[in-house]
Amino acid sequence: MNKVVANADAAVDGIRDGMTLMVGGFGLCGIPENSIAALVRMGVKGLTCISNNAGVDDFGLGLLLQRKQIKKMISSYVGENEEFERQMLSGELEVDLIPQGTLAERCRAGGSGIPAFFTPAGYGTEVALGKETREFHGKMYVMEEWLRSDFSLVKAWKGDTLGNLVYRHTARNFNPMMAMAGGITIAEVEHLVEPGELDPDQIHTPGIFVHRIFQGSGYEKRIEQRTTRKRG
């Protein structure tokens, strides 16, 4: 059951042009920096990326956008990326914007064997166009289908060789659901430990959802909006 691979390049082996990837993170927080860098090196193209955001111009998924490796983005918010906006408005990049809670739940459903569910989000808006709507207990809901990926790329704080994962603070975000919904799930961790070192009661993602794990390195962990207060 040892799922450890040597590095990011070994981890992304098998990702091919045109595949659908889930990429964890919220903004630049909790993104799989090493795996994204490996995709840049690999040069794989025509990707569909499911990720809450699209990075910034020169970091995160922005690195793949710059090199036109992404054909389609499925996200909830893409406001911080000029290159993204340019490609989208010019029609080079296909974009499916979906409500954040719906995105999270579609990933969760994909990883839970639930092909569809009903949510109130987006009812009466263009998000609901072409989708089944139904009334339950006097309120209208929109049917949304699960999302699944060929590969899911997630980032955790700690992980063991069996693939059990623990996230740190808000770097958790979409990573657990995307790990669940991956055909092959690749986890990169800041601290790779031996079985038994993680408290079974404190593990966020059970290793059964993870296929490959590696010790990441050189994390930049860039902060998008550095906000502070003065002492005293």
Partner: peptide, 28 residues
């Protein structure tokens, strides 16, 4: 904060920012 916090506090003191701890506006 919808990115996954209940009990969010104020901005950190200078020098105590944590890249793993942001709000939905991506602020530390």
């Amino acid at each position: 904060s919808e990115n996954g916090i209940l009990g969010m506090g104020p901005f950190p003191y200078e020098g105590e920012e944590d890249a793993d701890l942001i709000n939905a506006g991506k602020q530390t």
